[in-house]
């Protein structure tokens, strides 16, 4: 019996991952989050905040073989910057401390984000996992970096556990509701005048598959995960038949605050992304991890805007 613990089960990707794992043979899933799940699943769900010691005790009780850490999205808009920062860093400390103590854990799969590289005028155009990080992002970038450091330290100190860190490009799809996808599907999209960032995307199905793949094939290491190719923001909007609204800096930020009030809180790291863009080198994902996304960035965009069918069940 394979026992898998999933944090961040309340997110759409988390819920779907659990649904998919439930369908696989001889697998028992334990789901944890401090919010109510969006997706329905039958596995036991514990409503725990990962930065509490109760969570660490729960992990030690459950004795999982694999831990999937998905609770790494930026929740600063939802919880406030301080609380989100605390949950992220103290949560990572508690989680990986518990994993170090729990000798049944063989493998940890961690969802990181491309935001760990930041986005700024001094960022290289193409980021690989071995390029040294440049300080360009805000708190979220630091939190992610710290979380990744915890993972590496734990894996170094304890022989029984190894880790896979997946740095995902923004997830984009017809049913996912993250701030960036909500922003991209606005009828008129405010953009920063004179800037056209290069973006990489990953379809929601591929974002799910890469976790299923790395749970089944534990390849230790850090990998960038994104669909093949890259697109300028202007092209994404053109493919989606959205009208860009180029605004100068102040009007752009004012427009984003207006958008935030209507329920799409774009975090600082996403706004930086919309100015400078980010493209990651995904050769490690294809060669070492052995995963190739089903959809390219262009196809992801077409599918997300409902202009093409993916030919797959989402």
């Amino acid at each position: 019996m394979r026992r898998i613990l999933v944090t961040g089960a309340a997110t759409r990707t988390g819920g779907r991952l659990i649904q998919n794992l439930e369908r696989t043979f001889d697998t028992k899933v334990f789901a944890v989050d401090d919010l109510d799940p969006i997706e329905d699943f039958s596995s036991p769900f514990e409503r725990l905040s990962i930065d509490q010691l109760a969570f660490a005790r729960f992990l030690l009780d459950v004795k999982p073989h694999t831990v999937v850490h998905l609770q790494t999205v930026d929740r600063s808009a939802l919880l406030g910057a301080t609380r989100a920062h605390e949950e992220s860093t103290v949560g990572a400390q508690a989680l990986f401390g518990a994993i170090g103590r729990c000798t049944t854990v063989r493998h940890v799969v961690v969802k990181s984000d491309g935001a760990v590289y930041g986005a700024g005028p001094r960022s290289p155009s193409i980021l690989s996992t071995d390029s040294k990080p440049r300080r360009a992002g805000g708190r979220y970038q630091r939190d992610l970096e710290q979380m990744e450091t915890f993972v590496r330290e734990i894996a170094e100190q304890h022989d029984h556990v190894d880790y896979t860190i997946l740095r995902l490009a923004p997830i984009f799809g017809p049913t996912i509701r993250n701030p960036l996808s909500a922003y991209l599907t606005l009828p008129g999209v405010p953009t920063l005048l004179g800037f056209d960032p290069r973006l990489q995307l990953i379809s929601e199905r591929d974002a799910l598959d890469v976790f299923l793949h790395s749970i089944d094939n534990p390849v230790p290491g850090t990998f960038n995960v994104a669909g093949k190719g890259q697109l300028y923001l202007s092209r994404i909007l053109r493919l989606g038949r959205r009208v860009p609204q180029p605004l100068p800096k102040r009007a752009f930020h004012a427009a984003l605050r207006g958008v935030a009030r209507s329920g799409i809180p774009l975090e600082k790291h996403t706004i930086a992304l919309l100015k400078h863009g980010r493209v990651m080198d995904t050769s490690g994902m294809e060669d070492t991890l052995g995963f190739s996304p089903f959809l390219t960035c262009r196809q992801t965009t077409m599918v997300a805007y409902g202009r093409a069918s993916a030919g797959i069940e989402l």
């Binding site: 290289p124 155009s125 690989s128 390029s131 004179g194 800037f195 056209d196």
Partner: peptide
């Protein structure tokens, strides 16, 4: 502004060792 994406589109690159 404008230069930031046009210079890439016409084939120049940002001078870093990575690129």
């Amino acid at each position: 502004p404008w230069v930031s994406h046009m210079y890439r589109k016409v084939g120049a690159v940002y001078a870093t060792h990575e690129d």
